[in-house]
Design a protein around this nucleic acid. Structure first.
Lengths: 346, 346
DNA sequence: CCGCCTTTATGAAACGTTTCATCGAATGTG
DNA sequence: CACATTCGATGAAACGTTTCATAAAGGCGG
C-alpha cells in the first residue's frame, strides 16, 4: 500500500547525460549564462523538458542564488498588506523569483527577529520587511548580509532601500478634509510609541505628527486632542470612549488606522450617537473594511499595489548591484471620502 | 563606504575547531542525536553560543531536513486563514520548525501548482495546503514526495491527511437557526462548481449540499432556492439582487461565506430594505467582518486555531513516520447568532 | 601557413551539512 | 585475565548545484 519508493529526483547530472553534454553546460543554460551555443541550448532545453527536470533550490543556495525572496509580514490580519503583496508578485511575474512570506508576530520584536534570522538561514536572495519594529541597528545588520527593502517605515540608511507612504501628507489630507467640512474639534487616536528610533520612523508616529502640524496650519492648534492607545479595534474602542467622555466632545475623530476606526464606530453607536450626523470618523489605509458598503469609512488610500511594485523593482536592482547607493521612495496617498464624514452638527 | 566585506558566516567547521571536536560531533549535538556524551555536548553548546553559530538551512536541505514547513494560502484576504496560521505557529512554538507561507493565487490552479512546486524545490519538510483547488491526482502526486496535510477539503486519500470542518453540519446549523426563528423561504448563495472532483470535496459544494439536506429535514424542500455565483463580495451582491427580484422574495439568505454576506448586505440596503426586520442574513466563517459591531453578522465559526493546531500535530506525526496510515480529522462548527437574523416580518 | 585570440565545452573543486563505516576505549562476561 | 560487546568519537563520502581553471576548436591577421 505504500507509495512505490519514489523515483529519485531528476538532477542536473541526469539532464547532462541525456543531452550528452557536461553539467556545466546545463548549468549555463539554466541560468542563461554566457558560453553556450544555440545548438547546445536547444539540446539541453529539450532534455530538461523531456525529463521534467527542476533545479533543486537547496543545492543552488549552496553556491549561487535561491531565487527566493522573503517577505516579513507583521500581521496577516491587516488587510492593507495583501495589497502590497499583490503588487510584489505581479511585478515579479515572469521572473524566476518566488516570494515566501514569514509571519512575524504582531508587535513582537523577538518574533520578528526570529523570522528574519530564519530567512537568512534559508539563503533568501533578498528580504522585504514590512513595517518592521526592530531597532535601526538590527535592520542595518540584516541589510548588510542580504539585500533588503524596508516598507512603511521612514528614516534613511545607506544599508537598505525604503519605500513608504507620505504619512505626513496623509494626515494633512484628513485634517484638511474635516476642517473643510467645518470641523474644529478634531481629535486623533494614535498608537503609543516610546522608543526614540521608532518615534521618528514609524508611520503611526508620523501620522500623529502630521495631525498636529495640520491642526496648526489650519489655526486649530488649541483644539489638538490626542489619545494614545494602540492600532487595534480594542484600542479604537477605548480611545473613543475617552474622547466621548470629554466635557467638550470632539465633532470628528481621526483614527490612525481603519481597524482603529472600527472600534471607534462601535463605541459611538454604543453611546447612542449617529455617524456622521453627530460625529464624523475617518480612518487610514483604505482597507477592505472601509470599502464595505455597510461601513463606508472615509479613509486614506496608500496605493499598496504601487508600493509593492516599487519594492520589487528596488530589490531586484539591489540584488543585481549590492553596492549601488540606497534609494528612498515616498509615495503620495490620496483621500477617499465616504459616508462617515460630514459637516459637524448645527 | 561599502560594508566592510562581511566576515564569512560561521560554519560547523568553525564550531568544531573552536570546541576541539569533529564536525560529526557538532552535528550530533545540533540534532540531539544519539552518540554524544554530556561533556561533549556542553563543550559544543558553548562553542556554538560563543561564535553565534546558526546552521545553514540550505546545506542541511542537501542531506537532511530543512526544518521548514510550507503553507499554501490561496487568498491572503480571507480573514479566516490567519486563524489557522495562528493555531499552526502556536502549536509549532518550541519546535525548530519555521513556517513559510506561499501565496497561491485565488482560484488560479496554475498559480497554485507553481507555488507548491516551488515549495518542493526548496526542500520543505512538509506542506500544508489550505483549501487547494488542484485535482485529486495532483494532490496525491505532491503528497507522495512531501508529507502533506490538506486543510478544508473533504475527501480521503491514503497519500495525505486531512483536517476539515464539518460543513454539512455547519449548513444545517444555519438552516436550523433560521427555521427555528420561523423562516420558511430560506435561500442560499453558493460558489459555482463544475469540476466533478471538487463538487464532492470542496467546502462550498458541501455547504450547498448541507443546505438542501437541512431544508428537506425541516420539511422545506419546496422552498429550496439556490443562486450560483462566486464566493466574493461581488458574487454576494449579484446573487442577492437576483433573490430580491423574485416574485416571492426570500425572508432569509444564507450566504456560503461571510464575504458573500457583505455583498448581500450591500444589495439589501441598496434596495431600501432593513436587516433583520425585512430580511435575515447569515454568513459562514465567523470572520473579522462578522464580528465588527457595525455589521454583527450571524455566522458559523470553524475554530480556525483548533484546525491549525490539529494540522501541525498531524504533519509532525507524518514527518516522523511517512508510512503511518492517513488520518482524517473533522471538527464541528458552532453557530454564532448575531444581529442580522431575527424572525421573519409579520 | 603560423601564431594569437575568441568562442565553446569540460572536469574538478567548492559550498555546509548529515551519514556511513571505522576505530579506539571503556565496560561487562566467562 | 582474555575476549566480546557497547559506547563515544571521528574521517570521509555524499547531496546537487555553480564556478574556476583549463583545453580544444575555430577565426583572423600577418
Amino acid at each position: 500500500m505504500e507509495p512505490p519508493a519514489l523515483p529519485r529526483r531528476v538532477t542536473i547530472v541526469d539532464v547532462a547525460q541525456h543531452a550528452q553534454v557536461s553539467t556545466t553546460t546545463v548549468s549555463k543554460v539554466l541560468r542563461n549564462a554566457y558560453g553556450a551555443s544555440p545548438a547546445m541550448r536547444a539540446k539541453v532545453q529539450q532534455a530538461i523538458s523531456e525529463l521534467g527536470y527542476r533545479p533543486n533550490a537547496a543545492a543552488r543556495a549552496m553556491r549561487g542564488q535561491t531565487y527566493t525572496l522573503g517577505v516579513m509580514l507583521p500581521d496577516l490580519r491587516n488587510p492593507f498588506f495583501p495589497e502590497i503583496l499583490d503588487g510584489l508578485t505581479e511585478a515579479l511575474r515572469g521572473t524566476e523569483y518566488q516570494v515566501l512570506v514569514g509571519p512575524g508576530g504582531c508587535n513582537d520584536e523577538q518574533a520578528e527577529s526570529h523570522v528574519t534570522d530564519a530567512m537568512i538561514d534559508r539563503g533568501m536572495d533578498g528580504m522585504i520587511l514590512i513595517a518592521p519594529i526592530s531597532s535601526r541597528s538590527r535592520l542595518e545588520h540584516l541589510a548588510n548580509r542580504v539585500p533588503t527593502v524596508i516598507v512603511g517605515r521612514h528614516g534613511h540608511s545607506a544599508a537598505y532601500d525604503t519605500v513608504s507612504d507620505d504619512d505626513l501628507t496623509g494626515a494633512a489630507l484628513v485634517v484638511g478634509h474635516l476642517a473643510g467640512l467645518g470641523h474644529r474639534r478634531i481629535a486623533h487616536i494614535e498608537h503609543a510609541e516610546t522608543d526614540p528610533d521608532r518615534l521618528v520612523e514609524m508611520p503611526n508616529a508620523i501620522r500623529a505628527d502630521g495631525y498636529q502640524r495640520a491642526m496648526h496650519a489650519h489655526g486649530l492648534a488649541s483644539e489638538i486632542d490626542i489619545v494614545s492607545t494602540t492600532y487595534t479595534q480594542e484600542g479604537g474602542y477605548v480611545g473613543a470612549r475617552q474622547l466621548l467622555a470629554r466635557s467638550r466632545r470632539p465633532t470628528a475623530i481621526f483614527a490612525g488606522a481603519d481597524i482603529v476606526a472600527m472600534g471607534v464606530l462601535d463605541a459611538i453607536s454604543e453611546a447612542g450617537l449617529l455617524v456622521p450626523a453627530d460625529i464624523s470618523v475617518a480612518g487610514y489605509d483604505n482597507t477592505t473594511f472601509a470599502q464595505l458598503g455597510q461601513i463606508s469609512l472615509t479613509s486614506v488610500d496608500q496605493a499598496g499595489r504601487h508600493i509593492g511594485a516599487e519594492t520589487a523593482r528596488l530589490l531586484l536592482d539591489r540584488i543585481a548591484d549590492r553596492h549601488r547607493p540606497s534609494a528612498q521612495i515616498k509615495l503620495s496617498p490620496t483621500l477617499v471620502p465616504r459616508r462617515t464624514t460630514a459637516p459637524p452638527p448645527e
